[in-house]
């Protein structure tokens, strides 16, 4: 059970949040310029990192804001929480 620091509300239990997947590339502005293969890669391929992973979370049971966290997927340690513009707002204590 993770303790996640919402950048707006502070530390809350994982059950208040929705996981929104890894931080992916921006959706192409003109998807039609992409080949089927490129489009499939955009849609489906995953970095699936074993280690430091930047991901999106949604405080669905709270302020309903999306933000990013940096989590070690092996230890589950959360090393950073920041808003979508990737400004580092807090750095958690070790």
């Amino acid at each position: 059970m993770l303790l996640i620091k919402c950048i707006f509300c502070g530390e809350r239990d994982e059950t208040e949040f929705h996981y929104g997947g890894e931080l992916r590339d921006k959706r192409p502005l003109n998807p039609n310029d992409l080949s089927d293969k490129e489009w499939a890669e955009f849609l489906y391929s995953k970095r699936n990192v074993n280690g430091i992973h930047i991901e999106q979370w949604f405080h669905s049971g709270g302020c309903r804001q999306w933000f990013n966290i940096e989590r070690n997927t092996f230890t589950n340690e959360i090393t950073n929480t920041f808003n979508l513009k990737k400004q580092k707002i807090t750095r958690e204590k070790d």
Partner: peptide, 12 residues
């Protein structure tokens, strides 16, 4: 719900 290699899950 979230990806993880820890082989530990959430109590919920």
């Amino acid at each position: 719900k979230y990806i993880g290699y820890s082989q530990r899950g959430s109590f919920s």
